[in-house]
Design a binder for these strands. Structure first.
Lengths: 211, 211
DNA sequence: CCTTGTATCATACAAACGTATGAGTGAGAC
DNA sequence: GTCTCACTCATACGTTTGTATGATACAAGG
């Protein structure tokens, strides 16, 4: 029977891990059930048995990497401090999460890059992140920390830099020699990104609080 | 024989157009030569005949959409005016190009989202864009328009906002009702994005020119 | 008129695909 | 001892994949 409880047997977990690696590298259609089960050291039938189908395993993989990110962003946004410092914390949190899960941006972006509906499992966490960032910007505008403008798109701006950098990670590493996974390099880049986002959102000196 | 001259016969062009649509929507592996040739109103063997293989058609498709973008960015960067105004022009040019070629970001991001080597045909134009933006930032720093920092990553910042917005185009349309292809909406968003990028790069008031 | 070259066509091919099936294995319950 | 259950395994099924093949259509050149 399919196991839906949290105590996944060894094979089910190996399939999930192999799925994270292979789906991130080769995409959904580019990863065959045969190569995946082989990578996991499992039998050809293991995916069907443990997850029902290739698609369901894929959904679980995406879920396992996107949901924790959304929770992290939400908790940072809900934290204390000024709006701009929380914005900074969101950017830094994303950089950290990226360093821990380099497959995340690849999985997420593959899903978004395909023109069809994004995986059903991706929409809820994405919506929650977007809502959190939008309300953060709105709060900043009310407090006079953030300059006026459409908060819906300004919320998108916050993560645009780390996401874009994550997308360019491999080309940057190959062609420019910039390694985002190196802790020291990442700190330097994150500092610069934080400053960019902060100044991009901040009200100009002397600007009045919007009524 | 395969036609390599510019005067593509009708069928070859229909294949290229269908490829742009289908590869953008379903990805390389998700598009079969049968559906593609059917969409183009051509025979099953047409791809092999005109392009040699599915892969070569794909490369032509990517090339046809990325190279003009790179040329556009380069020409804007080489233009006159202050560094910040040229930066603004780059952002606006990207928004315009995106509106004309909605498939571009999908094709490009699919390639970048896959963990392997990006298509060989993607690297040269991408490198040229990056070089142009890096030198633009460097010039701005020398002139004291742009605040100090690693110019290699600050060049990446410039396009991060429009690229990220393009990536979120479909979810934003579906879940937030924001249509990036609508001219009026796009102008409003581009204005906001331009301000964000400008202020993110600009030196603070009173800062000295870096020696 | 016949030849030549380009293009389109239906069809064939082997390989790879996702999934289904049924046998086999080994630990725990009674 | 044997029944039960979760699991692994080899294998088979029907599709779909990208490409190869050879026949056909047809305008241009001699």
């Amino acid at each position: 029977m399919h196991d839906t409880d949290g105590t996944a047997p060894e094979t089910a977990r190996a399939l999930l891990d192999a799925g994270r690696r292979l789906f991130a590298r080769y995409g959904y259609d580019g990863t065959s059930v045969r190569t995946l089960t082989a990578e996991a050291g499992a039998n050809l039938g293991a995916i069907t048995y443990h997850y029902g189908s290739k698609r369901e395993l894929y959904d679980r993989v995406v879920e396992s990497v996107v949901v924790p990110l959304a929770e992290r962003v939400e908790s940072v946004v809900a934290g204390g401090g000024s709006v701009l410092s929380r914005t900074e914390a969101v950017v830094r949190a994303y950089f950290e999460y990226l360093a821990e899960n380099p497959e995340l941006p690849q999985l997420m972006m593959q899903e978004l890059a395909l023109g069809g509906e994004p995986a059903a499992v991706l929409a809820p966490p994405l919506t929650r992140v977007h809502a959190a960032l939008t309300s953060l910007v709105g709060e900043g505008q009310e407090r006079g920390e953030v300059r006026p403008g459409p908060r819906i798109v300004m919320g998108v701006f916050i993560l645009s830099v780390p996401v874009h950098l994550a997308m360019l990670r491999l080309p940057l590493q190959r062609y420019v020699g910039l390694d985002l996974l190196d802790a020291q390099t990442r700190k330097r880049i994150a500092d610069s990104a934080v400053e960019f986002v902060r100044e991009g959102l901040r009200v100009r000196d002397g600007a009045e609080v919007a009524a």
